[in-house]
Design a protein around this nucleic acid. Sequence first.
DNA 1: GCGCAGGTAGAGT
DNA 2: ACTCTACCTGCG
Length: 281
Amino acid sequence: MVEIRNPHFNLEQICQSGQCFRMKPINEIQDENVFLKDSRYEVIAGDQYLEMAQKGEYCRFFCSQVEFDSFWKGYFDLEQDYGMYIRRISPRDTYLLNAAAFGLGIRILRQDLWEMIVSFLISQQNNIIRIRRCIDNICKTYGEKMNTPCGAVYYGFPTPQALAELTDDALMACNLGYRSKYVVQAARRVVSGEMNLEEIRGMSYEKAKAELLKMFGVGEKVADCICLFALHHLEAFPVDTHISQALQAHYKRGFPKKRYKGCQGVLQQYIFYYELKSISK
DNA sequence: GCGCAGGTAGAGT
DNA sequence: ACTCTACCTGCG
């Protein structure tokens, strides 16, 4: 077990910020008398499974120090001080300051490229609850069955090979709807070598985004999400309906991307979470 | 029943 | 270059 203390690390906020669809609270046995609400979470990344528990600024990772250092520390971007990004916010920009204070524990994870491509193809014109359900469905149907150290079953994310051999509409059965053909065709491009994920990992933001845009079903917004959440290009600033509304309401002259050069993606997450979760809406 | 949910491709001006 | 629309599905 590894324990950290970090005000910029909050599992609930990371879950709800909608960047990771394979992290979720574990359903505890509901007992009205017991306040076991040390909120426990699980996450599946690659072929790894991890459980965590959070209480305030403290978080426990139920894995060895070696596993933590070699994988999870990087996955959660824990080497980075997110206070540094927040301190860059203009003191006059009360909206952004409020947004950052509201989502103080959000960070940008370093997730798998293939997984992010599929996840954000599915995300379009869809809500977060159904996105999670779709991804659960494809993992259970086409992912590798594995066991946690305790022996519980979990499923890995389906490989490009597993999805490439399906027919265009096979994933309709997993409730992907019209996005089914996007996912299958993306898998085929990766398997055929037409799309080289390893090369994309080495590209600059502009190059990587241009390459991703070649895929059927990937537009500006989805490409930026992939760049931000898989490739950690923090200059990516995905604009969706929520962000678009926020920009109209608070940044009539456009978001000051120059001022926040190199960390716009982090600020986008604060705004997105604020718009989605703050009660004022 | 109707509009919308972290959009995008394709057709039509 | 812009604007418009169809697209699966489920939930309010």
